[in-house]
């Protein structure tokens, strides 16, 4: 079962896919290359929003909304606060990346990683179709989460608690130290 390029474009869902994937990738690219720090973080928002869109396409609605709420709602705020507190160059253009002597090998490495993984995946899965699916019911997920996966769930909650306490402990200002 092979899918040619023309067959790919005949399916309407694939147009929706491209409409989400292309902006996602573009935003991802700008996140790592933009020379304006606030813009870079906002591009990250777009990119993560794109992944949420892909999740919706795959019927994983609960996960998609979680990404929207947790990442776009909370994590981005954290990033922006981090930027502001560390007094990063908020102005227009600044040199946020290393020079060319770092960029070139990094680009090469990234390309090779992309190439190797893509090749391996194409080799393994060819162009297998995703079987028809129903959107995953949130109730199913929650039942699984509190039954089969309850111990990992509890462990993760402990990790979050530890991270919370650890964050406070690290970032707390010591009385003696004058900043």
């Amino acid at each position: 079962m092979t899918v040619t390029i023309s067959e790919f474009f005949k399916e309407s869902a694939n147009w929706a896919f491209l409409a989400i994937a292309v902006p996602t990738l573009f935003a991802g690219w700008r996140t790592v290359t933009s020379n304006n720090i606030v813009r870079a973080v906002l591009y990250l928002v777009v990119s993560l929003g794109g992944t949420a869109g892909l999740f919706f396409m795959l019927g994983a609605e609960f996960v998609g909304w979680t990404v929207v709420l947790v990442y776009i709602g909370a994590v981005i705020i954290l990033f922006l606060i981090g930027i502001m507190i560390t007094r990063a160059p908020l102005g227009q253009e600044a040199d946020l990346s290393h020079a060319m002597n770092v960029k070139a090998p990094a680009a090469l490495l990234s390309t090779v990683v992309f190439g190797v993984i893509t090749w391996a995946m194409i080799d393994a899965f060819g162009n297998n179709m995703i079987p028809p699916f129903e959107p995953t019911a949130t109730s199913d997920l929650s039942l699984l989460l509190f039954d089969r996966f309850v111990i990992p769930f509890e462990v993760v909650s402990f990790v979050l608690l530890a991270a919370l306490i650890g964050g406070i402990a690290i970032a707390r200002q010591d009385e003696e130290v004058v900043s």
Partner: peptide, 16 residues
């Protein structure tokens, strides 16, 4: 980190 990834790629290629 970059060296780490280079190592991973080398190992993957070797396996292949």
């Amino acid at each position: 980190a970059a060296f780490g990834f280079v190592g991973v790629i080398v190992i993957v290629v070797l396996f292949v």
